[in-house]
Design a protein around this nucleic acid. Structure first.
Lengths: 226, 226
DNA sequence: ATTAAAAGATAGTAATACTATTATATTTGT
DNA sequence: ACAAATATAATAGTATTACTATCTTTTAAT
């Protein structure tokens, strides 16, 4: 779906790069092609050397933009959550009914975006793939506390908070809104991974995508009064 | 709590090692001290070289037991799920009431084990720490399909299945039991990680551990008839 | 046309993730 | 008690990774 949203420059935490990759051609190539390459060979086997060859530049040039491949992954993660934050804002604005608004939010968080019917942002689909396959590696490290202080997870936190507020608008008494939201966000990506690789662990599949349905049901039952 | 359970030798998939580490002294040292070292420096910085120095042996000796550090992590993961499978069986046996049985199962899966009051297995607590901090790295790789074929996740799947059956005993109509169980298992570990490092993402904390409470509430609401 | 900044080319380093080889203990079977 | 088998220690070596440094060339801005 064509949309003005495509032309928005999403804000990314400055601590994540040495030189803004969105400011130059090879910078943009680094971003776009790292997504492709990470999805192809996986983050463990991904190196700046391989990326350099892939985009016909040198390792040293890439190091001028990113300190390490881990920072690049953090950047991509941040970028993805900026997409989601934007879409969340956009898709839930003007919905007055609290229940409908939360439903829409759950949809944005858990469904695979459909470019035919929705305002999908550039690279959002392949970025989501990176997030599904590599996401927890961004915070499951010993550096998480330092990086958290640098604010690299703040966009993610904003998304969580926005949805927490939507839950509180429906049931202010519900005692675990943050846990519920993060369980849904992380869980939905994990269910997609399971559907692809460990199908016995899920009830969803490529042909019958039940992820959104499951979480819609789960959240609304959880926050029911009583 | 003293228990006969401590002396059981847990079964571990043979594809995970070259030589059974439980069969020798340095093998056992590798297991016990790798847990300590991984918890200390994190899996990324953990190397066989460092472990060798730590246990006063050589890198080459460790390689006789494990093909790679990834296989060792898989081993530890398998070991942890063997602990849980054993405890699950033990703690839910003889409970006739389906609801009480599921409650107990959720307890085993989501609570921090208390060695004063429960039959905790050797190393279970430090193994759980490894699982919380590193677990998703065991399957978020490009080798997941091959490793799955080798059966390295089968103990985990058994645990999931057992709990799925408990849910079906209460409500056979509930359409997403597998998704619910994996959401709870993975989610509960993640909530503990968040409580330690990204507290804004959760409602639980070190002082007020709400993880079990949240998931008990979540599961029973989810599977309610109607 | 001059200058600054970006990118390319090349080199180098310490650490990692292994493999291989040989020597020395230790255990086990007879 | 002794030979044979096995386990471990000691050492060396390799390709790759994750960088850092430097110098030259290209491009872009004034």
């Amino acid at each position: 779906m064509e949309s003005f949203l495509q032309y928005i420059k999403l804000p990314i935490n400055e601590k994540l790069y040495l030189k803004d990759p969105q400011s130059s051609e090879i910078g943009n190539k680094i971003l776009n092609e790292s997504i492709v390459l990470i999805n192809e060979i996986g983050f463990e086997k991904f190196t700046f050397k391989k990326l350099a060859i892939h985009i016909s530049t040198t390792e040293a040039s890439i190091y001028r933009y990113f300190e390490s491949k881990h920072k690049l992954l953090l950047y991509l993660n941040n970028w993805y959550w900026s997409c989601i934050a934007t879409r969340l804002l956009f898709e839930t604005s003007n919905i007055q009914d609290a229940v409908l608004r939360l439903q829409k939010a759950i949809h944005v968080l858990t469904a695979l975006p459909n470019p035919e019917t929705e305002h999908v942002l550039p690279n959002e689909i392949s970025l989501k793939e990176v997030v599904i396959n590599e996401a927890s590696k961004v915070f499951l490290t010993k550096e998480v506390d330092t990086e958290n202080k640098d604010g690299v997870f703040s966009v993610y936190k904003t998304v969580v908070n926005n949805v927490v507020e939507m839950i509180q608008a429906i049931n202010p008494e519900y005692p675990f809104p943050n846990m519920l939201v993060t369980t849904v966000i992380e869980g939905s990506n994990q269910q997609r991974f399971f559907a692809q690789h460990l199908p016995k662990l899920t009830n969803s599949s490529a042909t019958a995508d039940l992820v959104e349905q499951f979480y819609q049901d789960l959240i609304f039952k959880a926050i029911q009064h009583g």
